[in-house]
Amino acid sequence: MSRRLGAVILVLAAALLGLVWSAAPQSPPLYDGLANCSGPYKYLNPPAGLGPQHRNPTSGSTVEHVKNGKFTESVVQTKQAPARAPQALIQLGDGAVNLPSGITTVRLTVRPVPPPAPISNGVLDGNVYLFRAIGNDGSSLTLDPKIGGLLQLKKTGQELSARMELYRGGKWVPQSTLSFVNACYLATDARSFGYYALIAPSHESAFLTRYLPLLIAAIIILVLVITALVAIRLSRRVPTVEEAG
């Protein structure tokens, strides 16, 4: 009986899993786990009260040789200490960088920079990172928007509702952001190089999101306590005549 019921429940659960995955394919992909980010976030301008371990963020660069006039796949990421995740990286596929004639090498760089303009639509969560591609003649190269690249920025862990934004045309523009319930970074399908940052909503809502887990935990505990009290009360009720007999 239990085995048959188990099989029925497995079928129902599989159908429900398929439904949830198809309805929300980008998040959350895994149901549980522990974010595998280690080490403190390093700020260009650390918030007050943070120690020296939160200072001196790193940059990164790599040089790629052009093969047959075409850019080949590459990754550039900030340098990190052993057992530490990079704070910023971009993965580029074959042909992702537009190459004018005569370009033989491409230097890809990523570095933390001050915000190019004040952020009026939220709170900066971490550093602004400038991603660039530079040809051997010193010219700035562009990303082919049809191919793009996968860009990842590490979360500081201080703002739960941050999203990826790109500084373009004098303002910060929200990007389609891939979020993963137990990953320590956010990702976007970048269509251009430039200034990228994680930006959270205003301080007021950031305050709410910071304490939201505590609030939800308190509500859950309260519900479970009430359930417990009701269950204990019901289990100790006086038996009816039929039950006593």
Partner: peptide, 16 residues
């Protein structure tokens, strides 16, 4: 929703 579905799946494995 996802954790409910996964909880059911794990419960089904327990019963099976």
């Amino acid at each position: 929703p996802l954790d409910l579905a996964v909880g059911m799946w794990l419960g089904g494995l327990r019963l099976l």
